[in-house]
């Protein structure tokens, strides 16, 4: 997944990593990294689908203003660009619980 990313993370090897999941898929992210940036660097292209038309969206403003980077973290919908990566985060596309087989 990492090699397919349109983004390059410089100095990515520095610092400890954390394990998270996105839509059930395991990802290793730099601990404390901005979550939206880390997801982009890890090759996540679609953060969510809109409620109105189902159109794909991803991070847009990176400063907490546009709300396009909304993801569901451990059941709470949050702006990925306002969250830091930490161990064990279970990240999903919001409002798609019925669309995938999350046992929770």
């Amino acid at each position: 997944m990492k090699t397919a990313s349109p983004f390059l993370e410089i100095g990515a090897d520095a610092g400890p990593c954390v394990d998270v999941t996105f839509e059930g898929a395991p990802l290793r992210l730099t601990e404390g990294a901005n979550l939206a940036a880390a997801l982009l660097a890890a090759g996540v292209e679609v953060f969510r689908h809109t409620k109105t038309t189902g159109a794909p969206r991803a991070a847009f403003c990176m400063m907490g203003a546009c709300f396009d980077c909304l993801v569901e973290i451990d059941g709470v919908v949050r702006q990925a660009c306002m969250v830091e990566a930490s161990q064990g985060l279970r990240i999903n596309r919001p409002h798609e619980a019925e669309a995938h087989d999350d046992p929770a």
Partner: peptide, 17 residues
């Protein structure tokens, strides 16, 4: 994305397109 977002990615995270 906005160009500002591109800059934020680089400044904060060292992430480049």
């Amino acid at each position: 994305m906005t160009a500002g977002a591109g800059q934020i990615l680089l400044k904060q995270s060292g992430v480049l397109a």
